[in-house]
Design a protein around this nucleic acid. Structure first.
Lengths: 128, 128
DNA sequence: CACGATAGATTGGTATGCAAGGTATTCTCT
DNA sequence: AGAGAATACCTTGCATACCAATCTATCGTG
């Protein structure tokens, strides 16, 4: 696996957390979320975002309304957290801190220690 | 989706990083890796670990040898990083720090700010 | 010889990211 | 009017990793 596909694995789950966290700041529409979360080092592309928003709405975690803003040419679909979504994002954030602390911990230990060899005889490969 | 399945999504990719990081500390065998990475708040179960190790070996990122240790009843398969693996894990660790900083950043902004509403007219749902 | 512990491995189901492609609207330029 | 670009939302099909359940094999104990 190359590092690029690995990164897209790493993003799994994170998109949901980031989108919900952004909605915690206030009402947002699709392209706005893409701007905030999709840029350099970002975690989101539009082929990921829209199915995600649809799913979260279906699950009742977020609520949508179409808005014809005065400065906008095209109607936008604005999303807000539901009460359910607020609880979910709080729990996800707690989980994230535990999880990232664990991974960072594993990395940082590896920076100090140096390899040691296992004691014992290596078993020769069978010649058959 | 419940929070448990979400956590397993979050783990995608992280298992590889954690295993490679643990191998950076020295030679390890399967069950040992499970002890270090699989416990409470961990990122690894055995059904994940063994296919992962097989893949990493096939890709030449790690090297395995069977060891008949004096204190062990059953042969163990010990893994070490290859030169390729060392380079990979270094790059993955850099990627991880960028990624986790981004996600944590999104979360922390959401803690300060409070919701604001979009200006404009809500478009009534069509009655059809 | 049944049972549990240790150790490694496989299978099948599931969920997600995302490239590629699509629809629709509005504005600009000619 | 027509072409093209920008904005905005949406869908399809594929690749891939995680993991519960299950399996094989060895060794020690009762």
């Amino acid at each position: 696996m190359d590092i690029t596909s690995w990164q897209s694995q790493l993003r799994k789950g994170a998109a949901e957390l980031v989108v919900l966290s952004l909605l915690r700041q206030g009402e947002r529409y699709g392209v706005e979320l893409l701007d905030k979360a999709g840029g350099a080092g970002g975690v989101l592309s539009d082929g990921t975002l829209y199915p995600l928003l649809t799913r979260l709405e279906r699950e009742g975690k977020i609520v949508a309304r179409w808005v014809m803003a005065d400065d906008a040419r095209i109607p936008r679909k604005y999303y807000t957290l539901s009460a359910d979504g607020e609880m979910l994002v709080a729990e996800m954030q707690r989980t994230w801190f535990e999880f990232s602390a664990f991974v960072t911990g594993a990395i940082e230990e590896s920076a100090h220690d140096r390899p040691t060899a296992a004691r014992g005889r290596t078993i020769p490969a069978s010649t058959g």
